[in-house]
């Protein structure tokens, strides 16, 4: 069994501004249902969290800058931790996530290396 981080990327917030409240509610319920199903079936380890869109960036010269990437076309919006056999299985799980139903939604799947080298 391997563990994976799902990194949810999507359009920055402004793009969600024409979403109607009822649509938001449906989307939220779909997410809650998906994460709940994951816990039930055992592949969801941690539902994760959303990330605020603002932050700081510190570079090599120790220069600190404001780090919202809100002007970027796509931004990391949150993450979850999933467990399953391999990357292919993780990709199948990602396909069922409501996050990719919204236009511009994208999930990056990265294996957690701390589980040790593959046998």
């Amino acid at each position: 069994m391997a563990r994976f981080m799902f990194v949810y990327r999507g359009p920055a917030e402004e793009h969600q501004h024409d979403m109607a409240p009822e649509q938001m509610q449906q989307l939220m319920e779909a997410w809650n249902g998906w994460i709940g199903k994951g816990f039930e079936e055992g592949w969801m380890v941690d539902g994760g969290d959303a990330l605020h869109l603002e932050g700081k960036v510190v570079n090599h010269d120790k220069v600190v800058s404001d780090g919202p990437f809100a002007e970027a076309k796509e931004i990391v919006g949150g993450y979850s931790i999933i467990q399953c056999d391999d990357l292919a299985a993780a990709a199948e799980i990602a396909k069922s996530c409501p996050g990719i139903d919204s236009p511009g939604g994208l999930i990056e799947i990265r294996e957690l290396a701390g589980m040790g080298p593959k046998e």
């Binding site: 969600q16 501004h17 409240p21 938001m24 989307l27 939220m28 809650n32 409501p98």
Partner: peptide, 20 residues
Amino acid sequence: EDTVQAALVEALRTWRHQGI
């Protein structure tokens, strides 16, 4: 209206992970 929309979007973003 902008403020309200932004607050609802933030709720959506957070609650979808953490529940209501």
